[in-house]
Nucleic acid binder design. Structure first.
Lengths: 237, 237
DNA sequence: CGATTGGTTGAGCCCATTCAACGAATGTGG
DNA sequence: CCACATTCGTTGAATGGGCTCAACCAATCG
């Protein structure tokens, strides 16, 4: 929790600054924000950042690594609601009930930056653009969720898997990672759960895509060889 | 757009005040909010309050009536993302891209209250509790969407329909309407689209529920005769 | 009155699931 | 170091739930 002064782990010089909470703020404003945050807390692979039911007091931004969020239904069913990459925020859904309504689990050794929600709302009053940009962050999450509703509600299995790969590719690309060589951090079961499919179905479809020379599958390393065709698959209703 | 002064259509004395944007504000604060709004604009059944792609500048709160929101995919597919009742807000998803990303269609003759987003953000700076309560409104929408993801991702058809009816019943109840006599404002096709099912499937399942004496179906009038059993159906994974 | 929209029901089919076997990779303890 | 267990992934065969296609009816509307 303590940050060595020598580390200078400030938002201002963070590589993901413009994709994260400080996006659009000037240096002065970023400094104000920065001082309210705990930076680069390490979370081990498989560890829970928070869990369902836990009292909410802080939001998190992923600095490095990736997470999955999962809601559990009373009857034991679970649904993975998203895979989050660097720069994305965790805990937004907890604001409404002041308790976390999902589990956030690290898919690999990761680091997160933490800010108390009270601090954030205070800053929102002081820094006008922050208020608007935080509204945008929340709204963006709504749009994301609704596009998954479209996927789950009206796409066939092949289309879902293709859409998943294309989406991941775009997000990797935005993070200066290869858009064609995807190193998946989640299991086939995770993917299936997220897409409303069984893991066998996901596996079969990946094999089929490989056979059609759209992708190359070596376990969790997926190489996209024909993006255009893959994008077409997502549209082939 | 002009409000007759005699009408006194103020949030302060609105029956849904505590379920709407003014929730939690004191009388003075409500008055400030009230002055920034256009009240009780009539929207005819079937009319679009806004449509996908349209530039975003205002949010809406449903005063009376109900709406459906629908996103259209490039390939022609559509997905209904929600049915909204009085007191619920429309347009939240547009904040992120400054354009509407869905269509909002009135399911019956309705009235809405309109507030410019700029006015709202200005008020957020002035009225501290408004900022927090608006964050909650956004976060609540995220939670709602994620519970639909659970429904679409892991429930079977019967469970989805049962969950739909139970949810509608609860929301009607919260609005002092009968929790057992549901007058549906949407078609079977709308319901099916929303639930990721075909309209025939919805119709068949309603008939089956009727045969099992869980409900009574007379077209769009659904009478719930055994809530407990219906709730059990939603859990019977 | 016909035309249109919305709803129900039946028969057959197909896509994704279930159940199952197997292989590869990884980790653990003796 | 090997033996063993565990986790993860692939593939096959059979099943079934929801879809497709179709016919029919009721209500509404111009």
């Amino acid at each position: 929790m303590k940050i060595p002064l020598t580390q200078k782990s400030l938002c201002g010089c963070c590589v993901i600054r413009e994709r994260c909470l400080p996006a659009g703020l000037n240096d002065e404003e970023v400094l104000l924000l920065d001082q309210q945050m705990e930076h680069r807390l390490p979370i081990k692979k498989g560890a829970l950042l928070y869990s369902q039911g836990q009292v909410f007091d802080s939001l998190y931004a992923i600095s490095t690594g990736s997470f999955k969020t999962r809601i559990l239904h009373e009857d034991g069913r679970s649904q993975i609601t998203g895979f989050q990459l660097s720069g994305e925020m965790l805990g937004l859904d907890a604001i409404s009930e002041e308790r976390h309504v999902c589990d956030a689990i690290a898919l690999e050794d990761s680091t997160v930056c933490k800010i108390a929600y009270d601090s954030l709302t205070n800053l929102e009053s002081e820094i006008n653009p922050l208020q608007r940009s935080f509204n945008k962050t929340l709204s963006k999450e709504i749009v994301r969720d609704q596009s998954i509703m479209l996927l789950l509600g009206s796409m066939r299995a092949e289309e879902r898997v293709a859409a998943f790969l294309v989406n991941l590719s775009e997000r990797y690309h935005a993070r200066q990672q290869s858009a064609s060589e995807l190193v998946l951090r989640m299991t086939r079961e995770d993917i299936g759960n997220y897409l409303g499919l069984k893991l066998e179905t996901v596996s079969r479809i990946l094999s089929r895509f490989a056979q059609e020379n759209l992708i190359n599958v070596q376990g969790r390393l997926i190489t996209i060889t024909d993006v255009k065709q893959l994008q077409l698959v997502t549209l082939s209703s």
